[in-house]
Design a protein around this nucleic acid. Sequence first.
DNA 1: TTGCAATACCTTGAACCGCGATGTATGCTG
DNA 2: CAGCATACATCGCGGTTCAAGGTATTGCAA
Lengths: 108, 108
Amino acid sequence: MNGVPELLILKLLQQEEMYGYEIVQAISSRTGAVIAVGEGVVYPVLHGLERDGALTSRRKTINGRSRIYYSVTPAGSHRLADLSESWSSLTAAIQNLLTGEPHGEVVQ
Amino acid sequence: MNGVPELLILKLLQQEEMYGYEIVQAISSRTGAVIAVGEGVVYPVLHGLERDGALTSRRKTINGRSRIYYSVTPAGSHRLADLSESWSSLTAAIQNLLTGEPHGEVVQ
DNA sequence: TTGCAATACCTTGAACCGCGATGTATGCTG
DNA sequence: CAGCATACATCGCGGTTCAAGGTATTGCAA
């Protein structure tokens, strides 16, 4: 039932290039603090995705601050599509069970 | 990002009294096999919920088969409401981020 | 100028959850 | 009587996630 941090990170990075520290705060702010993934979650995910070729990184120095910006590769884009798809079907299935009739049949 | 099996089990049991083995198949069948929780998931959850006073059980023998039927207590009903609520807000937050505008603001 | 908060990176340890495998026992069916 | 479905149960592995800690720099405030 997992992979949510990875899904969110890929989605954010597909919209725009970002660096780790920024992602942590973006997730918190864009979900109204409902979801709060720490740095201990984000950095390992970024490294893993880069190792798998789903992301590329480049260093940038801004205001004397060194940042590592990540972008999604085509492989990463594909991975995002997969994750997004399976997340949709998962939530749909749960939603169906939660709101379905007590003796629920398949809705046609 | 967890607690989904517990949520589903509580929901099913609130609709009608069920036993473990039945729950395993009900989840599989009512979600079109998208979600498949094994017996190794269901039984420990049932025991835990009963220990916490969220469920009560009673034995029944049907066709020479011994079954343990579970029902939700008021405490269990309350727990279901909580889980359901937090699941809703979680999925809403994710959905908002997934479908939101690249520089997404809070939708009013 | 010293000290603290924020920025920005990273790793590590433990906790927890969920899963597959396995075990027991019984009833039904071929 | 062999094998499958039913019905219960536990256990250990592995994967995720988190909290905590560690380093270094910038900038502001006391």
